[in-house]
């Protein structure tokens, strides 16, 4: 597969503390890659290495099949978790400055900024100082300065913190649009529901080690529990419940239904086809609801972290 970013065997120590222990990562071109992990796992250390803010003690990072070096700075856009702007500097001036630091000419930067300011409907903020803006407004400016140099790789660390739901959605759509335009996105967050929504690949870092990675769908297959949520209508619920309990492991389920009087989560033994369960059920009762319980990223996250 064509990978935009490859990190090989990264080791990073801070004094006696090992922040990254032999972490390897491959981010496919055009993907939205979720970089997950509990606080202090080493995500930010890895992101800083990719941004060349710090250097790894060992290991190599490749961007677009080239060893990472200073010229790649302009190919990366980074929205850090700890972010901000110069408070007493004017919005437009500040954005121009940051764009020029990323290698854009003043003219080019101005043209692109005008496009983005119009897109976000904030053109009248150009001459305002950042301290006059609300937090959400400042975040919009921050997003623009992250993406305006059209980098190949975008790294967002908790991008939605500080946004109200409306603006969070706006940013989410922008991120997906950037991906459609060819950018590759690394997305680091604790908010698992946005991972479900956005990411097609994930990697999980825990206690300085990578413990899981791959396509989201493959990871989910790996964590499949063969559990089905079933809605049953039957005359005698107790008899059926006992029968099921002998053959499978069951637990009470809860979902909206107007007809079912027995709602269960039924786990079938590995290697068994769900058809067997269905046949067993249809021979005894009416089935109106039959859904495989797909593990959520949240479940996978918690389960992996607890198992390690």
């Amino acid at each position: 597969m064509d990978n935009l970013l490859v990190a090989e065997n990264i080791i990073k120590n801070y004094g006696d503390y090992r922040a990254l222990n032999d972490v390897s990562l491959a981010v496919p071109r055009g993907s939205v890659f979720g970089l997950l992990g509990p606080n202090g796992a080493g995500k930010t250390s890895l992101i800083r290495i990719i941004n060349q803010i710090t250097l790894p003690d060992q290991g190599t990072v490749y961007l677009d099949n080239e060893k990472l070096e200073a010229k790649h700075i302009k190919d990366i856009g980074y929205l850090p978790e700890e972010r901000g702007l110069y408070k007493s500097m004017k919005v437009g001036e500040q954005a121009l400055y940051l764009a020029q630091l990323k290698g854009l000419s003043k003219k080019e930067a101005k043209a692109r900024l005008e496009y983005w300011f119009e897109k976000f409907d904030i053109s009248n903020w150009w001459g305002k100082k950042v301290q006059e803006l609300s937090k959400g407004m400042a975040q919009k400016v921050q997003f623009i300065v992250t993406v305006m140099h059209k980098p190949k790789l975008l790294i967002f660390d908790e991008p939605f913190s500080g946004f109200d739901p409306v603006n969070a959605n706006l940013i989410k759509d922008e991120i997906l649009q950037l991906r459609d335009e060819g950018a590759t996105i690394i997305f680091s967050t604790h908010r698992m529901e946005s991972v479900e929504e956005l990411c097609d690949h994930i990697a999980l870092i825990h206690k300085s080690n990578k413990i899981l990675d791959g396509k989201l769908i493959d990871v989910k297959k790996q964590f499949r529990t063969n559990t089905f949520e079933v809605g049953i209508h039957t005359e005698n619920t107790e008899i059926l419940r006992n029968e099921l309990n002998e053959k499978f492991s069951i637990s009470e389920a809860s979902f909206n239904s107007i007809y079912d009087n027995l709602k269960l989560n039924i786990q079938i033994p590995k290697g068994t086809s769900p058809n067997e369960l269905l046949q067993f059920l249809t021979s005894r009762a009416e089935i109106s609801h039959f859904v495989e319980m797909i593990p959520s990223v949240n479940d996978i996250f918690i389960q992996s972290v607890e198992n390690n």
Binding site: I53, Y78, P80, E82, G84, L85, Q142, V145, T146
Partner: peptide, 8 residues
């Protein structure tokens, strides 16, 4: 908190 933005 602009430092990390600049430093990148």
């Amino acid at each position: 908190r602009i430092i990390e933005v600049i430093i990148s």
